[in-house]
Design a protein around this nucleic acid. Structure first.
Length: 485
RNA sequence: GCUCCCAUCGUCUAGAGGCCUAGGACGCGGCCCUCUCAAGGCUGAAACAUGGGUUCGAAUCCCAUUGGGAGCGCCA
């Protein structure tokens, strides 16, 4: 292939042995549902791993005991499964690995690469204010960095801080952003172990990524600034550094950050909105990544084509209209049987009873005409409702107007003549309607609309003669007669 | 405020110095098809943020400006 593997920023030969053992990971914190940005991050990690024949791992970052919840963990699993983003191996739970993290911190302490800090919250606040006044980025001023531990105040439990390099600079060769350099003087000594002995996120991520042998860290670019500190830590721990790919965040339709308070729905919300998982995947893939003029991209193609080099560097806005369009495409492409299975529960909830096999068979026969008219499964279920309703069919206002506006008067005549039609197929019903309306001096629409109104209860439906064929002669005639009374 | 990142139609994007009179898709307008509504086909309007360089040549490379975004916790 002429594009793909050799990405623009990739600093190594992708065909080397390293490509044989690529491992990516998705590492959400279970403090809420799997939101749309997380889903895309997971998708990119999954696709890249599959593209190179590597592994895609899942790690639940549940070290924040206050905010992590089991329902959130379940939601993440459910969301990934719905999207068919299957992870390899068992998920890793970060909190369960706290001992490993602590040992790493103690190792650094023993090697003089970390130190105990006894600064009080008041001192920290003062440092922050001083840093702000001096127009500095960093906050911690190294108060305990070189102080003799003997000076430690009694009764204060210390945190362990990383002794970060103070001179020089740190550069990340980011696969998406390119080389990004920051002066070490901008980075302060981060906390590794809290005073209660629990590890912080920075330490846990680094240790886990090392132990899980992660080769490619693909995540939101809100982590780009963290990457510098993490890289320093990795070096201090003597581990091999991973390759980073910081992908831009997804914004809301108005360009503002997509947050939980600002329209960032969980993937299950899109499922409930009637979106198909393959539409979601296709949409998310195209948000921040492109492959020439291709828009409709199958899973197989996505795996074959996905490369980090073509991930865009600018944030993308979430566009519901395009998602809907894609969803409509995938609904049309779905099998009739699958769609019946997906909308049956929705229809059942609405009509208040279980659909029997006869109704389901009717839905399947009518599906070809229904599915070109829906952008979501909700719309599909709405449009299919009349096939499942029991008579007499309730008419909506527009349908009522058609019947009462003169259409109803034709129905007796129509039903009597239809009774004589023996070849009950859409083409022959249409042929009958054309000749009958011509004979009566009416336009086809003047005949078709009253029939549609009576039979579907609405003024919008699949082609009406197709509907009659799907309904069958008996059901059609009783529905027509219902409207003549 | 400080550090870092980003900038092509309204939106998602193609673009790797000459293939660009800037392509595709969604959305929007028109036409066709037509029993309604869709789908489909054809078609129209619509963008390289601004200013300087570099170069024979810049959407593309460099700098500045402007505008967005992210991060600056004993959160993750």
């Amino acid at each position: 292939m002429s594009r793909g593997c050799a990405s623009r920023h990739q600093p190594y030969n992708a065909t080397s042995t390293i490509a044989m053992s690529i491992i990516t990971r998705f590492a959400p914190s279970p403090t809420g549902y799997l939101h749309i940005g997380g889903a895309r991050t997971a998708l990119f990690n999954y696709l890249y791993a599959k593209h190179v024949g590597g592994a895609f791992l899942l790690r639940i970052e549940d070290t924040d005991r206050e905010r992590s919840t089991q329902p959130a963990i379940d939601a993440i699993f459910a969301g990934l499964k719905w999207l068919s983003l299957a992870w390899d191996d068992e998920p890793v739970f970060q909190f369960a690995r706290a001992d490993k993290h602590r040992i790493a911190a103690e190792k650094l302490l023993a090697e003089g690469k970390a130190y105990r800090c006894y600064a009080t919250p008041e001192e920290l606040t003062a440092m922050r204010e001083e840093a702000k006044a001096k127009k500095l980025t960093k906050m911690y001023n190294g108060l305990w960095r070189d102080r003799d531990p003997k000076d430690a105040p009694a009764g204060v439990k210390p945190v362990i801080r990383f002794k970060a390099p103070q001179d020089g600079e740190t550069t990340i060769e980011d696969l998406v952003q390119g080389a990004v350099t920051v002066a070490n003087s901008q980075l302060d000594d981060m906390v590794l172990l809290r005073s209660d002995g629990t590890p912080t996120y920075m330490l846990s991520v680094v240790v886990d990524d090392i132990d899980m042998k992660i080769t490619h860290v693909i995540r939101g670019d809100d982590h780009l600034n963290n990457a510098f500190r993490q890289l320093q830590l990795i070096k201090a721990l003597g581990a091999a550094q991973p390759l980073y790919a910081h992908i831009p965040l997804i914004h809301g339709p108005d360009g503002a950050k997509l947050s939980k308070r600002h329209g960032a729905l969980g993937v299950e919300a899109y499922r409930d909105l009637g979106m198909l998982p393959e539409a979601m995947r296709n949409y998310l893939l195209r948000l921040g990544w492109g492959h020439g003029d291709d828009e409709i991209i199958s899973d197989q193609q996505a795996i074959a084509w996905f490369d980090i080099g073509h991930v865009g560097r600018n944030p993308a806005r979430f566009d519901t209209a395009k998602l809907s369009n894609l969803n409509g495409h995938y609904i049309r492409a779905s099998s009739d049987a699958r769609l019946v299975g997906l909308i049956a529960p929705l229809i059942e909830a609405k009509v208040g009873r279980t659909l029997d096999t006869e109704i389901k068979a009717r839905l399947e026969r009518g599906m070809a005409g229904l599915k070109t008219r829906a952008k979501t499964l909700i719309e599909l279920a709405d449009g299919a409702g009349f096939y499942a309703k029991t008579r007499p069919i309730a008419l909506d206002d527009k349908a009522k107007a058609v019947i009462e506006g003169g259409g109803g008067a034709l129905l007796v005549d129509i039903s009597r003549n239809l009774d004589a039609v023996n070849d009950w197929t859409a083409p022959s019903l249409e042929a009958w309607a054309k000749s009958w309306s011509e004979a009566k001096g009416l336009k086809l629409g003047q005949v078709a609309q009253p029939i549609r109104a009576a039979v579907s209860g609405t003024t919008v439906s699949p082609p009406v003669f197709e509907v009659l064929a799907v309904l069958g002669k008996a059901e059609t005639l009783v529905r027509l007669l219902d409207c003549t009374r």
